[in-house]
Simulated assay, not measured.
Amino acid sequence: MKALIHEGKAGFSGLSYGEIAERVPGAGEVSVRLKTAGLNHRDLFVLNRHLPSDPPLIIGSDGAGMIDAVGEGVHTVKVGDEVMINPGLGWQEKSDAPPAGFEIVGLPDHGTFAEKIVVPAENTVPKPTYLSWEEAGVLSLAGLTAYRALFTRGKVTSGMKVFIPGIGSGVATFLLQFAKAAGAEVYVSSRSKKKCDRALELGAHQAIDSNEDWSKALKGVKMDLVIESVGAATFNKSLEQLRSGGTIVIFGASAGDEVTFNLRTFFYAQQNLLGSTMGSAEEYKEMLQFMERHQLKPVIDEVFDLSEFDRAFQRLEEAEQMGKIGFIIRSEML
């Protein structure tokens, strides 16, 4: 089958679109013939985490398609069912942190940038009928990350003031939509005026330039909740916008993962600092129910043919996107 394969060299130079053997599902597993998939920042990180000495790897964590075959003992789905893939492996129930052994589709096991993928049957869920294939294919990883950070960890409620630095990523656009649907007042920042304008169209209360003085731009408004993923470049600025007793949740560190901050100021203000990553199968189902109730759809930036992966990766690496980048997978086996 055709797939996007990483092997032989670290980074992007080890990536190629070619042939690899498909696998037959074992007991408790299903094979999904993929129609669409979604690109994530994780895929960039995997290119350096997957070593040249490791076996060839199909990357990719998000995808949607149709059940192509079922393994022994699978009765929850049948051939022809339209499904989305929950990329979290081994995390079923909501908990304080992922259990030992938790992994994500696309490393160390094969991922979704291929004509087919074999996953545990429990990692497939029915595709919501109101979503297109492109929307379903880009949804899972970013949507689940946003849902856990905002609801499970951040405990967002109606009327809260929520700040999302660095609007533009798939997770950030989900955070904006989810927080708005929950009744929060949402503030965002970006260096791009185009992204700020788009965020306002999506319902942001205010969108500020990341390069300006945030306190002045926000006119002294303090936040109940800040969801951080930029990292060292913005962490202290984000902390300054947090009210006493407020909460900051961190799920990423794209611009540096080491920070220094004033502990005395932090504990006098009785503030809360929480980490978050992905989410459980329980939260995944909660997220889909929330989205369907509010008829929320992913913000899609651009969709490429899987063979055009180089253009898609370049767009993601240069942070040009507003929302999710997707892939169409044209199966040559049909």
Rank of each mutant, 00 (worst) to 15 (best):
K2Q: 15
L4F: 00
S16N: 10
G18W: 01
I20T: 12
R23G: 08
G38L: 12
N40A: 04
L44F: 02
D54Q: 13
I58D: 02
S61M: 10
G65Q: 00
I67S: 02
V70T: 15
V74T: 09
G80N: 06
G88D: 09
G88S: 12
G90T: 06
W91I: 08
P98N: 00
F102C: 09
G106D: 06
I117A: 05
V125W: 13
V125S: 12
L131A: 08
S132I: 08
W133H: 03
A136Y: 01
A142F: 04
L150T: 11
F151K: 07
F151R: 05
G159A: 11
V162I: 10
V162T: 09
I164P: 13
G168A: 07
T173M: 10
T173W: 07
Q177V: 03
K180A: 09
Y187C: 10
K195Y: 05
R198F: 12
A199M: 04
H205L: 12
H205C: 06
D209C: 10
S215G: 05
K216L: 09
K219M: 12
K219F: 08
G220V: 12
D224F: 01
L225K: 06
E228C: 08
S229K: 02
A233D: 01
F235Q: 02
E240G: 04
R243S: 10
G246R: 01
T247N: 06
G252E: 01
N272K: 14
L274V: 14
M278D: 04
M278T: 14
E282Y: 00
H294I: 04
Q295L: 10
Q295H: 06
D301I: 10
F304K: 04
D305C: 00
S307G: 00
A312K: 09
L316E: 06
A319S: 15
E320Y: 04
G323A: 03
F327W: 09
R330A: 11
